[in-house]
Amino acid sequence: MLKVAVIGATGAVGQEFVVALNKHRWFQLTQVAASERSAGKKYVDAIRDPSSGILRWHNREEVPEYVRNMVVSRVEDIKPENFDLIFTALESDDAKVIEPKFARTTPVISTAAAFRYEADVPILIPGINDEQVDLLNVQKKNRGWKGFIAPLPNCTTTGLAITLKPILDKYGIEKVFMTSMQALSGAGRSPGVIALDIMDNVIPYIPKEEEKVQVEAKKILGSMGKESITPADFRVSCTCTRVPVLDGHTESVFVETEKPAEAEDVKKEMLKFSRNVSIKALPTAPKEYIMVHDDPTRPQPRIDREINDGMTTVVGRLRKDTAFDNGIKYVLLSHNEKMGSAKGAVLLAELLKDKKIL
């Protein structure tokens, strides 16, 4: 068993880490850390609202027994050399300072954007760009670290990159247009979204989100060179919106392909990719990596987000596009708090262990 710590354990993403690591076959969570106001408290008390005493537990499952009485540490008191791996669920400004300190001795898997765009840092999605894990060794050499920083993509990028991969491999891609309808949980608790702003409403702007997706999708689907990644050679344009849905990011995607692509053939490619995905034997990998619906009313967040415990990317309304000479369009649903966040990070840790990077 590898010993792991979770930093930012009391927030929404941190709570998902706690659930994802419960009874894990490979990883043992032995320490949790959070802000000063939580430090010194039992975990179950640290996630209570201080004024009302209400348990601020985001997950539908109960607080796991193994962590309820674990005492929350200050981040400053974490000794990274005592762990085989550290998961972080931090804001980017904090991640910029804290994660390099840990990475000097210990691998870090991060949900923050702080290091995603640096040349020696891959943005990894298990099953999509596994070959890019080699860049972590370049990073260690460049920075003189024993560990590394491996960030997840933005949760909006995850489902998009997963569905584009089989299309890119078979047909090539010229352009991608995407409009997202993103869940409230993607905004976190702080600052979050005010209820009166989102009720009966759609917010047509999420700061920095569109720029992140446009850069990350091309880096993830790029080609690995000797010491760097060459971004994929297609254009991405997107509009990111917030909608009154609790969990699950829905995206409407239009793809101009280099070669002619029929909808039924693209479906077959997606399902073939899903059946043969490289990470299918890992403990957290879903039974179906990609699921494609023929029902034109699917996917829907309320119905489809928990398929395979939120680890499956669900596709529907796959059809020929009429605006492009060669093109298709579809709707996807990806669970932003599971595959797009903590549980996806645990899957990444499994991939790195399997490849003997951990």
Rank of each mutant, 00 (worst) to 15 (best):
V121N: 04
V18C: 14
I109A: 05
I78P: 06
E288S: 14
N137V: 00
K267W: 11
P286W: 08
S38R: 08
R56I: 00
Q182C: 09
L347V: 09
K343Q: 12
L271A: 01
D130V: 12
K41P: 02
I303M: 06
G14F: 09
S51N: 13
T111E: 04
A103K: 04
G316P: 07
L352D: 11
N276T: 14
L168M: 14
F102C: 02
V71Q: 07
S185L: 10
I167Q: 02
R25P: 05
T322L: 10
A161S: 15
E262K: 13
I290G: 04
I290S: 01
I279R: 01
P204F: 10
F17S: 14
T106Q: 06
T322Y: 13
S252Q: 06
I47F: 09
V121K: 03
V13I: 15
K226R: 10
M70C: 05
A5W: 00
L168P: 02
I173E: 04
N201M: 10
A195H: 09
A34G: 14
P299V: 11
N22K: 15
K23Q: 15
H58M: 10
P64L: 09
R305W: 05
A349Q: 05
S180Y: 07
F273K: 12
L351W: 06
R25W: 01
L347G: 04
G192S: 00
A183D: 06
Y205F: 15
F102Q: 05
V236P: 00
V13S: 12
F17N: 14
N129V: 06
D309G: 05
L152M: 14
R305P: 02
P204L: 10
V133Y: 10
L347S: 01
R116Y: 03
F87T: 15
F102M: 11
F148W: 14
G192D: 05
P231K: 08
D309F: 11
T239K: 00
L2C: 08
Y171K: 00
D304A: 06
A232C: 09
A263Q: 07
M181Y: 08
A183M: 08
L21Y: 04
V18T: 14
F177D: 03
N137S: 13
L333S: 11
N137Q: 12
F87S: 15
I86R: 06
L2F: 12
K267F: 07
M339T: 10
D304K: 04
A342R: 15
L184N: 11
K280N: 07
A323Q: 12
E99K: 01
K259R: 13
A349V: 09
T312G: 04
S190K: 09
L2G: 00
V108I: 13
R189W: 09
V176S: 00
E61I: 10
W57R: 09
S278G: 03
V253Q: 00
G316W: 12
A345K: 11
T230K: 13
D295N: 15
E251I: 00
A161E: 05
K3F: 00
K219C: 03
I123C: 01
L152E: 09
R74M: 05
C240L: 11
M339D: 04
T163S: 14
V121S: 05
T312V: 08
A112R: 03
A39K: 02
R104H: 03
R60Q: 14
K79A: 11
N137R: 14
P231R: 01
K338N: 10
F87D: 06
G340A: 13
A150G: 03
I194S: 13
L282T: 08
P50G: 06
A89W: 10
R116L: 05
L282Y: 13
V32A: 03
S51P: 00
K23L: 12
